[in-house]
């Protein structure tokens, strides 16, 4: 059920996840080959001090989008109103182009596991989560993107594939998808599906942002550790994604073993170099 009236999100270009390690370099060097930053929402849901100081200083020069880890949109507990209020206040503060969170749950019965836990891919879960996303979008008054996560197990309850699940929720909730290319690669390996088939079934106009990241391969499974550069097969999958989805804002996530900013910028240039000729070809 593709909806042709979906308005595509603006193409912000090539961005990076903002990390505390890079605050000073960003402010001192103000590199012009970063078009935008993605901030980790929860890190700035504080009352003052350094986090908000640097946030405001960097926002003066770069557009921002928000990325959260604790909404638990797929969780059985009621949505956390206090959390959403803080999130909305932050979105206003940085004038976020959009906000995203993961298609997962993060805890139940009042506990927060602080992990992106896998969901059963069922029709019931689709309608439950779509309803919650609608509530969140109405409250936030900004477009929401849901991100596919890396996962390490599948439930016997699941009756849909992951790509059917993600697409159905986005269509029914009328929200967007943050497609994490590395997560597709990781989950394809862990669950032995074809990543290309995944891409082919995601509705083009719903995709608003790409994530790229590195991971750790333990031989019989891969963990989404964000502590290495992006690997070649993931770059290849990214090229396929550009071919299918066109000019979608792209960014690199690095959360551990964080290198100097210029190294990440170098990696980001690789994304540009991959996307440019494909987009030129499409345009021609």
């Amino acid at each position: 059920m593709h909806n042709n009236e979906v308005r595509r999100l603006p193409n912000l270009g090539f961005g990076l996840g903002l990390r505390t390690d890079h605050y000073d370099s960003v402010i001192a060097e103000r590199p012009d080959n970063i078009d935008w930053f993605e901030i980790l929402s929860e890190n700035y849901m504080v009352d003052g001090g350094k986090p908000l100081h640097y946030l405001d200083a960097i926002r003066e020069h770069y557009p921002m989008v928000m990325h959260g880890v604790s909404m638990s949109i797929g969780g059985a507990d009621p949505l956390d109103r206090d959390y959403l209020k803080r999130l909305k206040a932050l979105a206003g503060r940085v004038q976020a182009a959009w906000f995203s969170d993961h298609l997962c749950w993060t805890g139940v019965d009042g506990t927060n596991i602080h992990d992106l836990l896998p969901l059963p891919y069922t029709e019931d879960a689709v309608s439950y989560i779509a309803r919650r996303i609608k509530q969140v979008q109405d409250f936030m008054e900004r477009p929401m993107l849901i991100e596919n996560v890396s996962s390490y197990l599948n439930y016997k309850d699941s009756s849909l594939t992951e790509w059917e699940f993600v697409s159905a929720i986005a269509e029914r909730a009328d929200c967007y998808i943050l497609l994490d290319i590395n997560n597709i690669y990781v989950s394809a390996f862990n669950h032995e599906f074809d990543p290309q088939e995944y891409l082919d079934h995601i509705p083009v106009e719903r995709v608003g942002q790409f994530h790229l990241a590195g991971h750790t391969n333990y031989g019989d499974y891969i963990v989404d550790t964000h502590d290495h550069p992006v690997i070649d097969p993931v770059w290849d999958l990214y090229a396929d994604a550009i071919r299918r989805f066109g000019a979608v804002p792209t960014m690199i996530e690095r959360d551990d073993h964080i290198p100097p900013l210029r190294e990440l910028l170098h990696e980001l240039d690789r994304a540009r170099d991959i996307a440019r000729p494909i987009l030129e070809e499409i345009a021609a």
Partner: peptide, 23 residues
């Protein structure tokens, strides 16, 4: 155990342990 799909490559125990250890 009853809820999760095992594959030849990775047991259910190992799959759960990935989450439990990460936590």
């Amino acid at each position: 155990e009853k809820e999760i799909v095992a594959t030849e490559r990775l047991s259910v125990d190992r799959r759960i342990a990935i989450y439990a250890e990460a936590y």
